[in-house]
Amino acid sequence: MPVYRANAIVLRRTNLGETDRILTLYTREHGRLSAIAKGSRRPASRLAGATELFNFGRYLLATGKSLDVVTQSETRESFPNIRADLNRIAYAIYIVELVNETIEDREPNPDLFDTILSCMYLLEGGVDPEVVTRAFELQLMAASGYRPRLESCARCGTPTSTQKVNFSPSIGGVVCGQCGPLPEDTMTIHHETLDTMKALLNAEAAQIRDSRPSERTLDEMANVMRWYIRYRLERELKSSEFIQALKAGR
């Protein structure tokens, strides 16, 4: 069995049999892949910690007939602060589910891997999870070919200048309303929200950390991105329901 190494984040894990787990790893080198971690549910298993959700580590994998096998692992970061905070857990789970639903197997994208990792570190460092998640959503959409058009009307190209702008998930960005009827899914947002989205779309970690959007902007962005992603994936992510439940109970 040929052996290879990968830096990876655990996107998902499911139990198999009595003591095994199947991991869905997002690796920097090989993109997403599934691998079996044998015996990882035994209390004293050397693999146990490395199979936990959003664990980041170095994995040694062996090519198997159908599934590859995790033979060794070394955890680089297990994000203990995320795990100690309900809100941060909820958003971190959402981020890994979103990645898993958006990408395809074995399509490496080191830049996207670095973005995921840097967002996880931001969450770990106590940055507002909502801001991190919005930035991540925008950058993930851009990386997977669905960058929303925010600078000018997505239909006719007229630059946006008004105080309030229309955003349509189905058109794929802002629409001016001059070049034709507004689609049914149009949402009206403030220009400030649009500016924040533009900034977050290209933001590096430090800029995300220092970004302080208003409550109104956060709400508008959450709504826009929820519908935008829903339109692209054609369904709602399961973990977003939990975020809604936490928000409702706040």
């Binding site: 004293a44 490395a50 955890t75 680089r76």
Partner: peptide
């Protein structure tokens, strides 16, 4: 640490805890 465990092989999360 689990009873009978090995510090050398414990992962970061377990040791922190």
């Amino acid at each position: 640490m689990p009873v009978g465990g090995d510090l050398d092989y414990a992962d970061q999360a377990t040791l922190i805890q």
